[in-house]
């Protein structure tokens, strides 16, 4: 037996993303952000996208390029404080922003990837972010109430990995892991980019972070672009 080769051309992989798609994008700040896949999506110009990303990157980087290009209707995120353009678009009413507490965002994505429908939590119960959400009182636990948080899936996930084998087993580096593993699980079609694609067997099975069954397309980057560099503030 052997395992499928999922390597794909970047243009062919991103071409699968139509207007109106929901797209999860890995990364926390710059680490783990798939800048090349995003830039290809900008080039392609798919419109009316819903983007799900922990943050809005910084001005002129990553998903800010999608925002500047008018491709995004809605952003589901935890924090946009480092991107003044995203804040301005939100304040002007031209970008809908749904804020989710960061760990709840991660868990909503993770449970979608785990095939579950919802979970109950008291996180945010005293905040305006709980408005409109269903409140659940747990039976048998005296008066414990929580809010129902629903699973968050997407049509596509764009993932940046440090390393992959040709079947799509992925490993990540340091804090570039962040939202990538959960998002890779939660999308109907997952596209991963990496500079380092190795033959089957070259990633120790014990060292796989995202198992290949979650990965559909694997894009080889010949080299990292400037966007991946250390940011000097």
């Amino acid at each position: 037996m052997t395992l499928a080769n999922k390597t794909a051309d970047i243009a062919a992989a991103i071409k699968l993303i139509p207007d109106g798609a929901s797209v999860m994008v890995g990364g926390f700040g710059s680490p783990g952000t798939p800048f090349c896949l995003i830039e290809q999506l900008v080039k392609q110009g798919s419109k009316n996208l819903t983007i799900i990303k922990n943050d809005a990157n910084q001005n002129d980087m990553g998903i800010d390029l999608l925002l500047q290009n008018g491709q995004v209707d809605k952003l589901i995120t935890s924090h946009i404080g480092l991107n003044s353009n995203a804040i301005a678009l939100m304040n002007a009413g031209s970008l809908e922003v749904e804020f989710v507490p960061q760990g709840i965002l991660a868990e909503r994505i993770r449970i979608a990837g785990a095939g579950l429908l919802a979970f109950v939590t008291d996180v945010g119960i005293d905040t305006s972010l709980a408005n409109g959400k269903q409140t659940i009182t747990l039976k048998g636990v005296d008066g414990v109430a929580g809010i129902l948080e629903t699973a968050l899936s997407a049509d596509f996930a764009l993932i940046h990995a440090a390393r992959a084998d040709t079947f799509g087993n992925l490993s990540y580096a340091a804090t570039a892991q962040n939202f990538n593993p959960a998002m890779a699980m939660a999308a109907r079609l997952t596209i991963a980019e990496t500079t380092d694609i190795v033959p089957l067997g070259d990633i120790d099975p014990d060292c796989v972070h995202t198992p290949a069954p979650f990965v559909d397309k694997l894009v080889h980057l010949p080299e990292l672009t400037e966007a991946y560099n250390v940011i000097k503030r």
Binding site: S78, H79, V97, F99, Q102, I104, T127, L129
Partner: peptide, 11 residues
């Protein structure tokens, strides 16, 4: 005026 979002602060 300024709505950066809560990030992980709520948890």
């Amino acid at each position: 005026s300024f709505t950066p979002g809560a990030g992980g602060a709520i948890e």
